[in-house]
Nucleic acid binder design. Structure first.
Length: 582
RNA sequence: GCCGAAUUAGUUCAAUGGUAGAACAAAGCCCUCGUAACGCUUAGAUGUAAGUUCGAUUCUUAUAUUCGGCACCA
């Protein structure tokens, strides 16, 4: 899908369209005040203060109509450069523009404004020549949006739109948006019976159905084997901990809002755990460790509970009950680089096996000014961030930096992906932590006999099974590779009376795979369709020909070719595909 | 949590201030069949709780959930 912000021409067109939107809104609501109207990846928006007025469904066509009218009028868009004092005078009745001007540096900034007919907006530009170029646009959505993105501020009205050169481009783009909805994991997850939810269980608490459970088990097996080979030790620990545990870790101070409230049991106070670090710290602390034993890698498929804001919950992608493929690596300072590298390699290895290509690395740093969120120890942060940055540079990894995206205890490397619908999310994560080992008073005995504090690397390769599954369903459009498919092979007898026995025998010969036999009293064509709708990768058809020749005919999902082979050839084919993860 | 919208059968959709309609799925019958939906029959629904009304699925309010954004985040 085209990135409008990155395309110079479309960027300009959409930026001008944002002004057109503002002008139309001003015509319809003369008291409207305007904040900013930037171009974004999928078009543009404008944040508008309409007083008590709230934009509704009915307003959108009216605004579009006014926009068309202004565009038809075809006024030129005229740029004018002004001084800061002129700007302050020109926008003296507009608190939002004054706020913008106020923050401009008089010396180094050219302040410009653009006028089209009766509408002038403070703007850096550039713009198209005339509003008459703005013919093929659509207002796509609208909502409230906090002023300056701060939930403590007033909520403005945001209107989104998109503009193209031709009607065809616009329609194609809108069609792409529609198509994206078809591969939304919430739809696929329902159609393929991967997961469900129920009001009586609660919001953000998905129930994994049998098909989903098979998929998840395969994911578990895959990463478990990888981790075993890399020397991870797996544990099971409880989903609850005492409040004191989280006071010790610091989560109580820094993360309490994201936790389910504490519960009183006899004279103890418990919380559902939002992460597993504290438990794993205690596992490490259970015995004395020599410098020779490090790194120690403790892994767990651990269920966590987070009190996510009600508006944030989304399918399997953002849930209140999740399972991480978590691990904590306890390392000596001199091992940080190497261990970190191994984690990144494991991530890349896994992405290759799952054929995942659309992701980017984000180095998530703290916001120095946010003393609320982040543990306050400048020296520790600088050390951790510098260390992490140098590891990433050594690895030659391409990444961008995200300030204010770190965990409260340390910086991290996040792998970001873009779902079918909505903003990008983190999948894999790898975090560097100098804090928790100190807070839990962890140590190892160094070569000189002195007690040293280990460094902890937190990492989750899939992130959570939940979100990873959501992503996988969207990437594959539900056409899961053979090794992950809940049902791998569907056997259909042409005639139940004559061919069923052969099918049943075949089934037991294929017992190592997930096989179904469709012995229902339906027509063959109907069963073929069913097999396809259920996205079963391999459909086997057994008729008289196959029975007579002791062969197998099969058809692959998405293909209309029928292939006839011997049983041995068929098993080899299936084996190869599972082995190669196709 | 905030701004908006939605909620009708297992699923996807329709309609109405006065008996809620269809398709697919289900069950029964028919068909015994060679690669994407045979036909017939039956059963099945207005999220929850109040209010207005002679009468509410429809109007109002609350609540829950879902959806689009904002904020937050694995």
């Amino acid at each position: 899908m085209i990135n409008i912000k990155e395309d110079e021409h479309l960027n300009r067109l959409n930026h001008s369209c944002a002004h057109l939107l503002a002008q139309a809104v001003k015509h319809l609501y003369p008291d409207a005040k305007f904040w900013v109207g930037p171009v974004i990846e999928d078009g543009f928006y404008y944040d508008i203060d309409l007083g008590d007025k709230v934009i509704t469904e009915e307003d959108i066509p009216l605004i579009e109509k006014e926009m068309k009218k202004i565009a038809k009028d075809g006024k030129r868009i005229i740029r004018k450069e002004i001084s800061k004092s002129e700007a302050l005078e020109m926008f003296k009745d507009d608190p939002y523009k004054l706020d913008l001007i106020d923050r401009m540096d008089e010396e180094n900034t050219v302040i410009s404004c653009y006028t089209q007919g009766d509408f002038t907006d403070l703007c850096r530009g550039p713009h198209v020549e005339s509003v008459k170029e703005l013919k093929h646009f659509k207002l796509t959505k609208f909502s409230g949006a906090y002023w300056k993105g701060d939930a403590n501020n007033k909520m403005l009205q945001r209107i989104y739109g998109v503009c193209f050169d031709t009607e065809e481009d616009l329609n194609n783009y809108l069609q792409e948006l529609e198509d994206a909805k078809a591969r939304d994991h919430r739809k696929i997850g329902k159609d393929l019976e991967i997961f469900m939810s129920h009001d009586l269980v609660g919001k953000g608490m998905p129930l994994w159905l049998p098909n989903g459970a098979i998929l998840r088990k395969e994911l578990e097996n895959y990463i478990y084997k990888k981790e075993q080979k890399l020397g991870y030790k797996h544990v099971y620990t409880p989903c609850v901990g005492t409040v004191d545990l989280y006071k010790t870790s610091g989560h109580w101070d820094h993360y309490k809002e994201n936790m389910f409230p504490k519960m009183q049991v006899d004279d103890e106070e418990f919380v559902l755990r939002p992460m597993n670090c504290p438990h794993h710290m205690l596992v490490y602390g259970n015995t004395i460790h020599s410098y020779r034993d490090l790194p120690i890698r403790i892994g767990e498929f651990a269920t966590d509970f987070r009190y996510e804001a009600s508006g944030a919950v989304k399918g399997l992608e953002r849930v209140r009950c999740m399972c991480q493929n978590d691990a904590h690596l306890f390392v000596r300072p001199d091992q940080i680089g190497e261990e970190f590298k191994k984690v990144v390699e494991l991530i890349l290895d896994m992405y290759k096996d799952f054929n995942i290509k659309n992701y980017s690395f984000r180095l998530s740093l703290r916001d120095k000014n946010d003393k609320e969120k982040y543990f306050d120890d400048d020296e520790m942060w600088d050390e951790a961030e510098n260390k992490l940055r140098s590891v990433l540079n050594d690895l030659g990894l391409k990444y961008y930096e995200g300030v204010g995206e770190a965990a409260f205890y340390g910086p991290k490397l996040d792998v970001q992906i873009k779902p079918a619908v909505g903003p990008e999310v983190t999948l894999s994560t790898c975090q560097l932590d100098f804090l928790l080992p100190r807070r839990f008073d962890l140590s190892y005995i160094d070569s000189d006999g002195s007690k040293k504090i280990p460094v902890v690397i937190h990492r989750a390769i899939y992130g959570t099974f939940d979100r990873f599954t959501a992503f996988l369903l969207e990437e594959t459009k539900g056409n899961l590779p053979l090794w992950l498919s809940p049902v791998q092979i569907n056997i259909i007898p042409v005639n139940n009376e004559y061919h069923l026995e052969y099918c049943q025998n075949l089934m037991s010969e294929l017992e190592n795979y997930r096989v179904e036999l469709d012995a229902s009293e339906e027509k063959l064509s109907y069963k073929m369709r069913e097999s396809s709708v259920r996205k079963i990768p391999v459909t086997v058809i057994i008729g008289q020909k196959e029975v007579d020749n002791n062969t197998i005919s099969y058809r692959l999902l998405g293909s209309s070719d029928t292939i006839t082979v011997t049983k041995a050839e068929f098993i080899k084919y299936i084996e190869d595909r599972i082995e190669s993860k196709n």
